[in-house]
Amino acid sequence: MIRKMINLVKSNRGFTLIEMVIVLLVISVLLIVSLPNISQQSSEINAKGCLAFQQMVQGQVESYRMANNAVPASVETLQTQGYLRQNEITCPDGRELVINTDGHVTIKETP
């Protein structure tokens, strides 16, 4: 039984150089095809992230309004009162959020 296992191990060979080159070629082609698509989608991902952040801040404005019976003056007010974390006052793409007088959160467009 042990001799059969030893013979089986000895008869198995590793990959040949040609097989390794073919595998690397296939992986390279997949990377070449997929990377441009990922980089083109980054602006759309940032825009959707900013919309999600806007909705989250809107929820925090409502929480502030219920606790204080007033609308916060700015996003910085939410931050200082503990409704937002320290580095959570701008969108992932750098655009700022503005809270108007009725408590609606909008994205400030850059000129």
Rank of each mutant, 00 (worst) to 15 (best):
I2M: 10
R3W: 05
I6N: 07
N7Q: 10
V9K: 05
V9N: 03
N12I: 08
R13W: 01
G14A: 10
G14C: 02
T16W: 01
I22Q: 03
L25W: 00
L25M: 11
V26I: 15
V26W: 01
I27F: 13
S28Y: 03
S28W: 02
V29P: 04
V29S: 11
V29E: 03
L31R: 05
I32V: 12
V33S: 08
V33W: 04
L35E: 02
P36G: 02
N37S: 12
S42L: 11
S42G: 00
E44Y: 02
E44P: 00
N46V: 02
A47P: 00
A47I: 01
K48M: 11
G49H: 08
G49E: 06
L51T: 07
L51I: 06
Q54N: 10
Q55K: 10
M56Y: 10
G59R: 05
G59M: 01
Q60R: 11
Q60V: 00
Q60S: 04
V61Q: 00
E62D: 13
Y64R: 08
Y64Q: 09
A67I: 02
N69L: 15
N69R: 13
N69M: 13
V71R: 11
E76Y: 08
E76T: 10
Q79E: 12
Q79M: 15
Q79C: 09
T80I: 10
Q81H: 12
Y83H: 10
L84I: 07
L84E: 07
N87E: 15
I89E: 04
I89H: 07
I89F: 07
I89V: 12
T90P: 00
D93F: 04
G94S: 12
E96T: 07
E96K: 14
T101K: 14
D102K: 10
G103S: 11
T106P: 00
E109G: 06
E109K: 11
T110A: 15
T110F: 06
T110K: 13
P111N: 14
P111D: 14
P111I: 06
